[in-house]
Write a protein that binds this DNA or RNA. Structure first.
Lengths: 237, 237
DNA sequence: TATTCGTGACGAACGCCGTTCGTCAAGGAC
DNA sequence: GTCCTTGACGAACGGCGTTCGTCACGAATA
């Protein structure tokens, strides 16, 4: 910053052009970081830009947050505010679909958030709330406790992986959107599979790319749930 | 670099202390990057360090590789060299376990590789080889083609997610190893769940952390396969 | 043979990033 | 009124991916 002219007394009276900047606080930091991570420009969040938006320097954040990792965990739990867990009376399968669907929607709000959700481990209060609900649902479906416990892990991993998988790793918002679209790199790779060398791939090349994201998510969730029910009763491990 | 003394003629005769540095090439770049990504120091790979190891500057790599992303894709396929796909005569379930297991082992060679494998989309020749084998196995198990096509995606996503999930996002190799161990942040979070507010979590707190990585992987793979078989015959979507 | 030209190599720089250190001023304690 | 704690923060460090402009070298041309 350029040295301030000591004679410009007006600058001394009010050092900030912005009115009444809120004092730094953990909540303000998390809120701004969350704002950035879901911003449609796809830039994601960064400590420096959070500090800049809060009208301070990067070093100041370290009074409220240990680490980038901790901030990410806080932001993730903030994002999980939007997850709906239904009510105990709901039919179990519909309730599970509701939970998983709203979970997917919450962390798919932006590619940056999806990547963050996969990388961070969800241990905040919202994660607890969701885990409780899923355990309750599975118990209602007749799944034994040990199987249900492992199933929660599998289901949440599945949802965050699904969200992160299709999130481009770059800042480049490609015209086509996903990478699995016709003309994309996957389609190109499939074209390289000759009928002689890779007969099964060749035969299935249409199916490998078919379906929308929602269809495939619903299909995969159904596969998981059927598998879990099939294992219910047999203690895992 | 400091300006070279024009009188030290010996330096002119041989500019490099290292003998016969191999000429830059795509293969040499990929090989060095792979070496870095599986290095036990956990530093992962970077364009700059690859260039440094090859005794050149970062800019020189761009003659052989478009992008960091492209290099990552090449490294990933290089890593998949080690995946075993078995033979058509093998019993289908054992063969599938073999493929998934060796896939998991290949990309779990280091946390950095695991993260890379999840982020990059596998479209190289090895990915094709693996896809072909899995499709073959599922066909042998009586799964229809459309279901099998979607199942391949689900299975590979599951394996790379499993590998990446437990790979710390940091360069910090924590003493305890995984984050889900007793005393880790997950265990701490579970301790915060009171029996009144979160009865199911409280009751299942032991099961949520039980089992080794291998046990849970085997269990989850079994869940997936059962689910896929349950959907076989019903066209997906 | 002498000259031109295309091209691969690469030093230097740009603009990001997370993190640390040392300073400094404001406010409470005495 | 003075001391001391502590939050704020400017500056810097080392690392990252990527780009640009230059330059030397070998092949093609005259």
């Amino acid at each position: 910053m350029a040295p301030r002219d000591p004679f410009r007394t007006s600058e001394v009276a009010s050092r900030r052009s912005r009115p009444a900047k809120p004092p730094l606080s953990r909540d303000a930091i998390v809120e701004e970081a969350y704002r950035q991570v879901i911003a449609p420009d796809g830039a994601g969040m960064s400590l420096r830009r959070v500090a800049l938006a809060l009208d301070t320097g990067p070093a100041s954040l370290y009074a409220y947050v240990d680490d980038l990792t901790e901030l990410q965990a806080l932001v993730l739990d903030r994002a999980l505010d939007d997850v709906t867990v239904g009510a105990p009376g709901d039919p179990w399968r519909a309730r599970l679909d509701l939970i998983l669907g709203s979970y997917l929607r919450a962390i798919s709000a932006s590619p940056a958030l999806a990547r963050l959700a996969f990388g961070a481990i969800a241990v905040g209060p919202n994660a607890l709330r969701i885990t409780e609900a899923v355990l309750e649902v599975l118990a209602g479906a007749g799944v034994d406790r040990a199987t249900a416990a492992w199933a929660v892990d599998l289901l949440t991993m599945f949802v965050s992986a699904q969200a992160a998988e299709h999130a481009p790793t770059m800042h480049a918002a490609e015209p086509g959107g996903h990478a699995a679209e016709p003309g994309g790199p996957v389609a190109q790779a499939l074209d390289r599979a000759s009928a002689e060398a890779f007969p099964h791939v060749y035969a299935a090349r249409g199916d490998l790319l078919s379906g929308s994201g929602e269809e495939r998510f619903a299909w995969a969730a159904d596969v998981l749930i059927r598998g879990i029910l099939a294992r219910a009763g047999q203690a895992p491990g």
